[in-house]
Structure formats: structure tokens, C-alpha cells
């Protein structure tokens, strides 16, 4: 296993994300059914589950893009949705959509988001981020011309531009080929090694086993199982996953 948790900042008991009895319904249909979930400072948590389990809905609530129907949600100590603006300052979000403007160049996209967040020394910060995601040479190219993998790398650059303490990744591997996925692995490890708290949803059990400190299995809107690195051999995760989701 290539995991480098020794270089990562140790979780120190501070809950960066906490939900209690979180419920979300669309009309009469319940999507999340009373989720109790918490992530400590510096922890990398993966949420896995079949399609329709509620992973994206859960992440959208944490990202302040959707309101909970019931229950309590706190991110970085702030209550949602009442203190959403304060939460957004601490968050970087990567979804399977890049959230980038296709007609603008790499540089222009980062400049726009940098201005929106009020990033100081923006030019230098953009260069640092582009070096980190390996797109420095393409900074004057339009995003529309990029492959899916390159757009995803830039999307990570956009998400870390304001140096957020918490990162949310929603299915970041969707549509990536092997090479692009391996590159994303390296980027995610790099991001996690810088002491950020990370929550990632994914279908890919092998990848989350390599990256995460803890894997939670979400099934039918509930956390059906939670496996922490060291407590259980993560190699047994696929068997556990299938027993939970096919029970």
C-alpha cells in the first residue's frame, strides 16, 4: 500500500464535519435517513455506496448547495444552513463536473475564482497551484480544448486556490482513463498530505482503500458500515461492501 499517513497531520480530535440525524427528502421520497457522521481534523474519509445511495446528496448538503430537511449539520464548527457563508470560506469542492468556463483559459478561470474568494498575491498563487496540478505549460489554453483528466486536474486547482481546510470530492474519478486516474491519485495524496480534511465519494473500492483513513458504506440513505484503517484489513472491504449492499 502506498499510503503515506506518517507525513500527514495527525487528527487531533477536533470534529471538522459533524451531522446528527440528518434527513433529506425530495418530495415524499427520503434520500438520507438520519445520518450520524463525523470527520476529525486532518482525516481522509471515503464514502462508498451503490448508485442512489445518497452520496452526492450528502456531499451537496455539506457543500452548502442543498438544505437538510431535518437534523443538524456542522462544518468547521458552523451550523448549516444558517452560517453557510462562513462554511464556504473553509471549503474546496470538486465534483464530476469541473465548474469551469470552457471559453476562458486556465489562467482566466483561476483568476476569476481567485477574485471571487479575495485571494491575495493572486498571480503568484495561481502559478503555485498550476505547478501543483501540472498545468503550468497550458495556462493560456482554453478549458474547452482539455481532456476530461486535464479538466479534473484544473478543477482540483480551482478547489485549492483559496487554501481551504476541508475538501469535498464527489466521484472525482468519473470518466477518467487509467493514466488520468493515477495522476489524480497522486494529486489527492498530495492534497491530503498537506493536512487537509477530506471527504470523498467514490464507486472505486480499490482507490479509496489506498487513500482513505476511514471508509463509510452508504446504503439506502444510511451509513451501513464504517471501516477504519488499522482496525480492519481494508483488503476485506470489497467483501464487506457486497455483503452490506446485497443484504
Amino acid at each position: 500500500m502506498t499510503h503515506s499517513s506518517d507525513r500527514r497531520l495527525t487528527p487531533c480530535g477536533v470534529k471538522m464535519i459533524e451531522t446528527q440525524r440528518l434527513v433529506k427528502t425530495f418530495g415524499l421520497k427520503p434520500v438520507l435517513r438520519g445520518i450520524d457522521f463525523s470527520v476529525e481534523y486532518g482525516e481522509f474519509v471515503a464514502l462508498v455506496g451503490p448508485n442512489g445511495a445518497g452520496k452526492t446528496t450528502f456531499l451537496r448538503i455539506l457543500a452548502t448547495l442543498s438544505r437538510p430537511s431535518m437534523g443538524e449539520v456542522r462544518v468547521a464548527g458552523h451550523l448549516l444552513p444558517a452560517q453557510a457563508t462562513a462554511v464556504r470560506r473553509c471549503l474546496g469542492v470538486v465534483t464530476h463536473q469541473p465548474l469551469l468556463y470552457g471559453d476562458m483559459t486556465v489562467d482566466e478561470n483561476l483568476r476569476f475564482y481567485g477574485r471571487m474568494y479575495g485571494v491575495r498575491n493572486l498571480q503568484q498563487r495561481i502559478e503555485d497551484v498550476l505547478e501543483m496540478v501540472g498545468l503550468m505549460a497550458l495556462r493560456r489554453d482554453r478549458v474547452r480544448q482539455f481532456s476530461r483528466g486535464m479538466q479534473q486536474r484544473l478543477s482540483i486547482g480551482r478547489a485549492i486556490l483559496h487554501d481551504p481546510g476541508i475538501l469535498l470530492f464527489d466521484e472525482p474519478y468519473t470518466g477518467l482513463d487509467q493514466e488520468a486516474a493515477a495522476m489524480l491519485d497522486t494529486l489527492l495524496r498530495d492534497v491530503a498530505d498537506r493536512g487537509r480534511t477530506v471527504v470523498m465519494t467514490s464507486h472505486d473500492l480499490t482507490r479509496v482503500t489506498d487513500l482513505a483513513d476511514r471508509v463509510d458504506i452508504l446504503h439506502k440513505g444510511e451509513i451501513a458500515a464504517s471501516v477504519r484503517r488499522g482496525e480492519v484489513d481494508l483488503a476485506e472491504l470489497p467483501a464487506l461492501y457486497f455483503s452490506v449492499t446485497h443484504a
Partner: peptide, 14 residues
Amino acid sequence: DRGCLDGLLLVPVD
């Protein structure tokens, strides 16, 4: 297009 509206809604401004 490309979910940019979500990108705007994530920005910490009114």
C-alpha cells in the same frame, strides 16, 4: 454548462 452555477454558489459572498 460544466456546473458553473454550483461553482458560483460555493463562493463565500452574499
